[in-house]
Design a protein around this nucleic acid. Sequence first.
DNA 1: ACTTACAGTTTACATCTGTAATCTTTTTTT
DNA 2: AAAAAAAGATTACAGATGTAAACTGTAAGT
Lengths: 122, 122
Amino acid sequence: MKNTEKITDAELEIMKVLWEKKSLTLNELVEELSKEEPKNKSTIKTLLYRLIDKNIVKSVEKNKKENEYKPLISEKKYLKSANETFLDKVYDGNVNNMLLNFVEDKKITKEEIEKLLNIIDE
Amino acid sequence: MKNTEKITDAELEIMKVLWEKKSLTLNELVEELSKEEPKNKSTIKTLLYRLIDKNIVKSVEKNKKENEYKPLISEKKYLKSANETFLDKVYDGNVNNMLLNFVEDKKITKEEIEKLLNIIDE
DNA sequence: ACTTACAGTTTACATCTGTAATCTTTTTTT
DNA sequence: AAAAAAAGATTACAGATGTAAACTGTAAGT
């Protein structure tokens, strides 16, 4: 699949909610997204339609009045693709270099790395 | 500075070369960028001008005929900003989650993490 | 000095993106 | 049944982006 990479920033905000909630009506979606700052329903509709066009979301009839929207690709899959794209684009695929920079920026601490080691050892 | 984040994908390719070579004429730049696949000079010109507009690159006279182009912001600074943007956008700032996903995708191996620990211990 | 070639600069243009309004079809309400 | 409300679907539009051509001024060759 290539579509995974074509999720834009605004669309991603929609997807995050859909991944978390699995399935939502438009109104539920708008409500979720408006928790922090109010969002325009029309805008969300457009983004949703674009995601449907791209086969990233599907629309299923819930009842006579409303549809439900469900993700067609998994978050894992998206993350894998997003990681790869970022790594290639910014670091030409060099993970070490990326990690070093995160450490330099104090984004990654020693504790986190040790935690990670433990997890890997399973 | 905010401009750092506004470097687009195509512009980034230009910047990578400028960061590495410090200073180049247009022709040198085109030559470098064309090593893998030939690039259109006109396109590179446009990207260069946009970077100049954004105060990310400066143009200095080299001789009567040609100018040299130099980066105005450091690669480190860009990387810091790019890391942050990616982390926030995709993982809502959760570094652990990001690392876990990189590990799952086999992008980060145990060896790399151990190497990293050594580096931090300095 | 005149022409040519090329660096520098400006303009063009299709597609993508964020944002939203409008139109159409159903469902509710009165 | 008629009117109102709302969901679904389409259209709009400005700014960003990738790609490249056109224009302009000057250096270089003859």
